[in-house]
Nucleic acid binder design. Structure first.
Lengths: 147, 147
DNA sequence: AGTTATAATTTACAACTGTAAACGATGGTT
DNA sequence: AACCATCGTTTACAGTTGTAAATTATAACT
């Protein structure tokens, strides 16, 4: 079976990021960091921890009186899934421009850029001359104009 | 002022796509298309139309007994905003890989690819050798390891 | 003018989210 | 043994989302 990616909400991402970055943590550590970074009350962090455990994105490991929270889903896999999911709702025709906008505004290392260049180069030969719009169901690909 | 982008939910995107693609439409046309594409009941489409009007993403123009629903926000601008928003929750360090995954799995025209190549090439000179993780608040950039 | 089809608006309702307080259990302290 | 600081769990509560039925308004038809 594939990596079981879980639906993670915006705020829950913030919790996951810390754990992905630092490894398994106690709730008190998490809470401290997230109060600092997000301004959350301790109770808020606790709520998200509970929900993430219920969703299966985190697993608690008893350690003395507290728990260490371990991520069960991979960061890269989760990111890939979230991004793919979002793009699936967007018009295919506009994806090129959207990626262009994104790449323009995001921070990339020289290495990243080289990798992307290569991926693009590899993709070029099989690329179509034009991408068609996939916003309409098959039946409706003809003109419909009103107004 | 900038283009006023609106928060559009997953399902609402599907409504907007049709209007962005075909231009202003009557609710009956929309409902037919979305029943076809998404399997929605007419009432469901109506609900989303109402919400999108309330959110200001659509504006109804009376036309006889019905309304034509016009998009007030641009498709590209909305896509750019949605994608940027998502990426803002992701670890900077992993964005390169995420883009790579995305580019690998998405359909791009030769033209798109060329544009992206150019954007990347232009970005290369000023690109850092390494991107640092931005998942922790400033204070916490040192080691924290437990477990 | 009365009836009917249909368009728009209201209401419904459960699940998910953001945000957090309240409560109960438990290990550490006096 | 009694108390206190915490940790985890429950409860709270409003707003959003997905999904749709019910109701109301209204144009068109008879």
């Amino acid at each position: 079976m594939e990596t079981p990616t879980v639906d993670i909400s915006q705020s829950e991402w913030e919790v996951m990021r810390i754990i992905w970055t630092l490894g398994p943590l106690k709730s008190s550590t998490l809470a401290a960091i997230l109060t600092d970074k997000m301004g959350w009350k301790v109770a808020t962090t606790k709520t998200f921890l509970g929900r993430l455990v219920k969703k299966g994105a985190l697993v608690p490991e008893k350690q003395g009186r507290e728990f260490l929270y371990h991520a069960t889903v991979g960061e890269q896999a989760s990111m890939d899934a979230a991004v793919t999911e979002l793009f699936s709702h967007l018009c295919q025709m506009k994806i090129g421009k959207t990626l262009d906008h994104l790449i323009t505004h995001v921070t990339l290392s020289k290495h990243d850029i080289n990798d992307l260049q290569q991926t693009l180069t590899a993709k070029l030969p099989d690329a179509p001359a034009k991408v068609s719009c996939n916003c309409l169901p098959e039946r409706c690909k003809e003109e419909v104009h009103e107004g």
